[in-house]
Amino acid sequence: MKSAASRWAHVDALKAVACQLIVLHHLAFYGPMSDVASPLAPGLFEWLSQHARVAVQVFLVLGGFLAARSLAPQGRLKPQAAPWGLLGDRYARLVLPYAAMLLIAIAASALAGEWMEHDSISNPPRPAQLLAHVLLLHDLLDFEALSAGVWYVAIDFQLYAMLLGLLALGAWMEREGGLRRRMAPGLVLLAVGGSLLYFNLQSGWDEVAPYFFGAYGLGVLVAWWSGPRPRKVALVALGVLVVVALATEFRERVAVAALVALLLGVLQWRPHWVPKAQGRAGRAMAYVSRISYGVFLVHFPVCLVVNAAFTAFMPAEPLWQALGIAVAWGSSLCAGALFHHHVELRAMAWIAARKARVQGHSGSYGLR
């Protein structure tokens, strides 16, 4: 039997690679180091700038896949689960490290502004702007983002809330209708269809969850319908839906999400096909996967400061600026690791301790 680490090696690999592509995309897209270094490999810089951002789809599908396995592994919300409590936990898990990152981003913009002028440098935030970021409402309220990628944190929370809502609705329909059949998978399928065939075609919806639920929902449904005994009819219907969506309008992001979901489904069906995660390479991949949220949060402030330093103090020559890109990439990984250990893990420990205290108080009150 495969170990747990081996069974999840493909998930670790997807997270680790997608995280690096996001870092490199931002380095290539925002400059100014990439503006000088791009003649060294124009095709590579063009691809990283315009196409590497599709790696976000990997995180969307994995997010749905892991959320489904955690919240409702059998397609039904766990009986002891309290949706509001779960939503609060998710908010704290996302926002406590994210709030720390916002302070780092503000400081990074201030420092970078001393060394260069560039569109990627944010203005000092107003109190309302900072509050909107903490409440994950910055895009909805049209505030300037304080760092690249902060939109994803808000969307992740919205998607989790949307899935919880569908699970709760499915449980209510089963309870009120006296149904034994699980209703949540059908509701999620309808939501995926609505996303792929309507919302994801409308650019004006790209600030809210329905635009992205097609990819997220693919991960959810694959988690439920694949495995040693796959739901073949349901999976065929899901495949037809994806084909129709791509025929309606081909979107690279949808195609990539479908391929990631297909990979997850096949490896759930045939877990012995998962490559073994052994040795230093396997441990390194698992580690980069664990710190991926920390890297995602802090990489842009780090890259901004390195961009400013190399612009101000190093020759404006391709090789020197390419070295700056390598320094920014490596520094992002190191900063992400430090952030994971000293901020993210401490935040998770605080959340766990608080839950334990609340549950302990609830128990003591119940004995009176």
Score class of each variant (00 low, 15 high):
His341Thr: 06
Pro318Cys: 05
Val243Cys: 08
Glu344Ala: 06
Val260Ile: 12
Tyr287Leu: 14
Ala316Cys: 04
Ser331Trp: 04
Ile291Cys: 13
Val274Cys: 10
Ala286Arg: 15
Arg290Cys: 11
Pro275Arg: 02
Ser292Asp: 06
Pro275Thr: 02
Val240Ser: 00
Trp273Tyr: 04
Leu345Asp: 13
Ala328Glu: 00
Cys334Asp: 02
Val305Gly: 14
Leu267Met: 09
Val266Glu: 03
Ala312Lys: 14
Val343Ser: 04
Ala258Gln: 03
Pro228Arg: 14
Gln268Ser: 15
Ala261Tyr: 02
Ser289Arg: 13
Ala309Asp: 07
Ala284Ser: 14
Ala255Thr: 07
Ala335Thr: 10
Met314Ser: 11
His342Tyr: 14
Lys232Val: 15
Val298Phe: 08
Ala322Phe: 11
Val220Phe: 09
Ala335Gly: 05
Phe313Pro: 07
Phe339Cys: 00
Val242His: 03
Gly294Phe: 09
His272Thr: 10
Tyr293Glu: 13
His342Trp: 15
Ala308Lys: 11
Tyr293Asn: 06
Val254His: 14
Ala284Ile: 10
Leu264Phe: 01
Val260Met: 05
Arg283Trp: 08
Pro228Ala: 15
Ser226Gln: 02
Arg280Gly: 12
Tyr287Thr: 15
Val327Gln: 05
Val260Gln: 05
Phe250Gln: 04
Val243Arg: 06
Val298Glu: 03
Val274Tyr: 11
Tyr293Met: 07
Trp225Ala: 13
Val302Ile: 12
Arg251Phe: 10
Gly294Leu: 09
Leu333Gln: 12
His341Val: 00
His342Gly: 05
His299Phe: 04
Ala328Cys: 00
Asn307Thr: 08
Cys303Gly: 15
Ala308Ile: 12
Lys232Gly: 11
Val256Ile: 10
Val236Met: 11
Ala316Tyr: 09
Ala247Asn: 12
Gly336Ala: 15
Gly279Thr: 07
Val256Gly: 02
Val220Thr: 12
Gly279Asp: 00
Gln268Asp: 12
